Every structure is written in C-alpha cells, then in structure tokens.
Computed example of a mutant assay.
Amino acid sequence: MCNRSSREWLFAAALAVGMSPVMAAEEVTADQVVGAIEDVFGVTQGQRRNHTKGTCAQGEFVGMTEVSAYSRSPLFSGKRLPVVARFSLAGGNPKAPDTAKTPRGMALEFTLPDGGLQHITMLNTPMFGAAQPSTFLAQMIAMKPDPATGKPDPAKIRAFIDSHPDSRPQAEFLASHNPPSSYANSTYFGIHTFKFVGRDGKVTPVRWRFVPRDGEKRLSDAELKSSPPDFLERRLIERTRHGKVHWDMIVTIGEPGDPEDNPTVSWPEGRKEVRAGTLTISSAMPQHGAACEQVNFDPLVMAEGIEPSNDPILMFRSSAYAVSFVKRIGGL
C-alpha cells in the first residue's frame, strides 16, 4: 500500500505548484467545498454530498501481466480480483434526472491478492472542470440558488465562466455530447495523471480509461426529451441479468512535456496505448444496503506500483471525500 498519507501527498503537491503547505491548506479547505456543495443541493442525510444518486454493482477485474513491465502493482497480477463498483450522477441531488447533461461516474474498489485495496474513480468526460480546488469552490458558490427565485443567478454563472477558463473544456464537452443511454454504454476516464512504478523503480506517467465492449451509445435528442427521469439504474440491472458487462482498461503512456498536474488539459493524440486488463460487472442493484453504499472511494487508496501525480485536484479529492464520508456515516 502507498506509505504516504493523503495529507503528505497534499503538501507535496502544494510545493510542486509553488505554494507552501500552509497556503494549500488555508486557500481552500475540504469543509468549505463540501459546505458549498450542500448550499447548492441541500443535504440528504446519511448520503454522499456529491454523486448522491448512484447504483451499486459487483464483479471482477483481471489485469494483464504484460503491464508489469511498467508497474509492479498486484492489480496486474493476472489473477481474478473482486470488485465493488458504483455508478453515479454528479451533484448532490438524489432525484437528478438521468437525462441531465452532467458527468456520470464509475468508482471501483479492487481487493488485491494480499488483501490490500486499490481505488479507481472516474468520470465519463475526458477532462475535469477545474484545474485548482479554488475553481470548483467558485463554481459551487456561483451555483448557489438565489433565495428569491430558488435558482442560480445567471449573472453569477456568467461571471464564474468568464473568470475561470479552466472550467470551459468540460462544460463544452458536456454541452456537445448527450448523456449515455446506459451506464454500460459509456467510457469512463481516470481524469488525472498517475505514475506507474516498475520493479526497477522506473516511473512512467500514465492516464487511463475504461472502454465498454457494449459500445458507446448516447441518447438521441428525441430520447433526451422523452426519456423518464430514472432509467440508468433499471437498465444496468436489466443488462446484467442478460449477461456480464465488460470494459477494457486502456492505459495511455505519457511522454516528456505532457501535462501531469492539470486534469482539464488532455494529452496529445498518438500516445502509446496498452490494454491493461478487463473489468467484468456481473450484477447491479440499488445502492441502499448494498456493498458500495458505505465505501469511501478515496482515489488516493493505491497499491504499491501506482502513485499519484502532483495534481492539486487529485490531492484535494481525498480530504473532501473524507469530510463527506464522516458526515454521512454520522447520519448527517
């Protein structure tokens, strides 16, 4: 398991981007961000503050042993590893319509041969909507409903977009791509850069995505208007009843100069890609009482052989997830 705490990684990231650890801790805190999310969506007691609406699933992962040339992680042992999965919609609204043009998530917890854990948390957009935690916080503040109307103030939204260009790539992607017709018909992206560490200590920057063997399928414009507000969970459950669902893990190998600390910037085309394994989902179920419900899918839970980059958003997610987790297990 990774032997550095989330706080240590956060401090290392702060130094890498030219901030002192004190500045990193004081500029934006996890409590501020989680509180801002609550201001936008309200609080559903005992539930996640973000990606509240979700569906549990179970399956397995078989990693390709060829990847051991890049990483000594037991994720790529070639053994069948149990997986607890969660599919979700971004935002804190448990009744968000499945037609909303917002990100979809796939979160995975792998149980490794030695009993250790590996988490992978992804979105169905190739990039994130913020390069710094301060951008995400500013977005939540701008989205806070006006008490007079119960809706966000359009002027504040425009001001946020104008002053935070790092939010635009993801927003443009979502605006130009209809949501998937099923969780099973979407690619999910790791968003961040990670580091594969080989047995010889060599470090290789990588990004990954999980590509559905069922193929990419999106709602048509007509379906976007006519589909019911709740269909994603039902379709995933029905799909698994008809057979197992598979995704291929595709790893992109970074080259010198590729951005490693900005999840809003995609890598250039033409990078070497390696098929690193296959995820198989064999069953899906409502999240209440299921295995995924109480899992805190902290993206910094990593096995030996995989390490985080100095991405400020990646570092920050761990502490924000922790604040949300403590609140929900406390029934708040």
Rank of each mutant, 00 (worst) to 15 (best):
G190Y: 13
G330W: 11
K225M: 12
Q287H: 14
D146Y: 06
V323C: 00
A12V: 15
M19L: 15
A148H: 01
M285T: 13
S283G: 04
A138E: 09
R207C: 13
P229I: 13
E66Y: 12
S167T: 11
S88F: 09
P147C: 07
G289K: 08
T204D: 06
R207T: 11
Q170I: 06
S318N: 02
K272Y: 06
Q287A: 11
Y70C: 08
R48N: 02
P113K: 08
A222E: 15
V274N: 06
G115V: 07
H51V: 09
E304I: 12
R80L: 00
N178P: 01
V301M: 01
D166N: 03
G198I: 09
G129I: 06
P312C: 00
P103Q: 05
S167D: 13
G105K: 02
R317Q: 06
G129H: 07
S318G: 01
E66C: 03
F87V: 04
A155F: 10
F189R: 14
A100N: 07
P256E: 10
T135I: 06
K101D: 03
E307K: 00
S134G: 10
K272H: 14
E26I: 14
L236N: 03
G35F: 00
R275I: 04
R4W: 11
S71K: 03
E260Q: 15
M19S: 13
M23Y: 12
F316V: 00
G270A: 00
P113G: 08
L117Q: 10
K225A: 15
W247M: 00
K156S: 05
R241T: 15
S68T: 08
F61R: 04
A155V: 06
P145C: 10
M23W: 15
A159F: 08
E8F: 10
S163C: 07
L10Q: 10
F136R: 13
E109L: 14
A69Y: 04
D298H: 03
Q170E: 15
A276G: 04
L117R: 15
L219T: 05
T135C: 09
P97E: 02
E307Q: 04
L314D: 02
A85T: 01
T29R: 03
E238K: 15
S319Y: 00
A322K: 12
Q287T: 14
G115A: 01
T204N: 09
S226H: 13
F110Q: 01
M106T: 01
L219M: 04
Q118N: 07
M127F: 08
M64T: 07
F61N: 02
H164C: 07
F316A: 04
A148D: 02
V265N: 07
S182P: 04
R72C: 08
A184L: 15
M23H: 14
T102R: 12
P312R: 01
N124R: 03
F325G: 02
G190S: 14
W208G: 11
